[in-house]
Design a protein around this nucleic acid. Structure first.
Lengths: 226, 226
DNA sequence: CAAATCCTTAAGATAAGCTTAATAAGAGGC
DNA sequence: GCCTCTTATTAAGCTTATCTTAAGGATTTG
């Protein structure tokens, strides 16, 4: 899952991103209003953790932007304790959940996962694709009843394919989704080959079928009809 | 077993927590209503010892919160003698047991253990996992008939694994469960390695099998199928 | 109060995963 | 069928995660 953390307190922001990364998220950070808007224009995120109090603007304006631009991301508002107004306004503006500071990182994790479930999986804990099951909670994948031992990147890649079935994904898109803004000034996305190859191999080994179709000159597609 | 003690009388609270800690519990303390709610939002407890009379609120409201938020913890209500109303209300609201002040600490211990048994072990005194038996009452562990001599942390760790079979537990989650809120602003959870290693060693020594599986990049998992 | 045990921390070793570069294989156009 | 461009594979070096070793402190026990 790809997350944008919008938080101006550098130390907290660093804690959050490194924690979420360890927990398997693809995590990007914006430390002010403009940077946030900028990133939202350029990239697509599954969830956004949004601090209300920013040095150069109000987080709720970012939320308004998200909604008016019809950006389809889950939004978790983070704000100071007992700031009830923010809570009410935030939820009214269409935020998915609310978390008060100070909070504990696992709580953030749990809420993000819950938003993801509600928003993208209709509340389910797992995604199915033919005989492939992904248990999003502990990042477990089983194929035909056998556990698949995937690395972090392979898992992220599979999840990305499964939430974009039958859609062609270019290497660049994949790179952006799995590696975030690190890919900003890259010209070469060869490393995607590696992970596609590894993922393919493991799935074929377990299921005998290669659902990942190469679309020559474009990218890859998870093919339902195989 | 991880317990949250909600009790405003500082001296009594201190007595309780230090007693329970000596008895092998992982024990946290909240001395008022808000602190309690806060902790309940962030952490998961096996049992909650809940004093009814708090300076800034009523314990029964905490109980209501626990139930409405579907927090799955056992609840032991503590209140002044002969306050029959509280007892009836408390049990009606879904508390698991009731203890009147003044009480003896071993009595508290016994009741907490009883709640744990009823709630998590279907009334049994021991947990079995393959050839590993945990007798929760006296904290004894046997593997293939041989007594396993575990330290307090190892025991707590094993119990935590056994109550979360086949679920990936991150080092941070483990740390929080075994060390409580002391871990709040830690970034490094290396010390978990040690205890996992020690526990593994003892189990392998006794049983020849290493049920604790390392999930690279995430944490550990007690694997049933080994 | 001393001895023993346990817990924590730090540093170095090992292992797993990720990225890069070089080379091979395959697809499409002419 | 040949050339070019794209994709796949191989292998190596690099990074990050985990494990081990060891030592000092804290805690418990006798």
């Amino acid at each position: 899952m790809k997350v944008l953390v919008i938080e101006d307190n550098e130390e907290l922001a660093q804690n959050i991103t490194s924690y979420l990364t360890r927990e398997g998220y693809i995590c990007e950070l914006a430390t002010n209003y403009f940077q946030a808007i900028d990133k939202l224009k350029s990239f697509k995120y599954d969830c956004i953790a949004l601090d209300i109090l920013l040095p150069d603007g109000n987080g709720l304006d970012i939320l308004t932007h998200i909604k008016s631009e019809k950006i389809d991301s889950g939004v978790l508002i983070i704000s100071a304790k007992n700031s009830l107004d923010d809570k009410v306004n935030g939820l009214e503006l269409g935020a998915d959940d609310y978390l008060t500071k100070p909070f504990h990182l696992p709580e953030l994790n749990a809420r993000l996962k819950a938003i993801y479930r509600r928003k993208y999986l209709q509340g389910a804990y797992e995604i199915r694709f033919n005989e492939i099951y992904i248990h999003t909670d502990n990042m477990e994948v089983s194929v035909n009843g056998n556990m698949l031992d995937l690395t972090r990147k392979e898992y992220a890649l599979l999840l990305y394919f499964l939430t974009n079935q039958n859609r062609v994904l270019t290497r660049q898109t994949i790179a952006e989704h799995l590696w975030g803004d690190y890919t900003d000034n890259l010209l070469n996305f060869d490393f995607v080959y590696q992970h596609v190859k590894n993922l393919r191999k493991k799935i074929v080994q377990a299921d005998g079928k290669d659902y990942i179709e190469t679309v020559y000159g474009l990218g890859y597609k998870l093919n339902t009809n195989k």
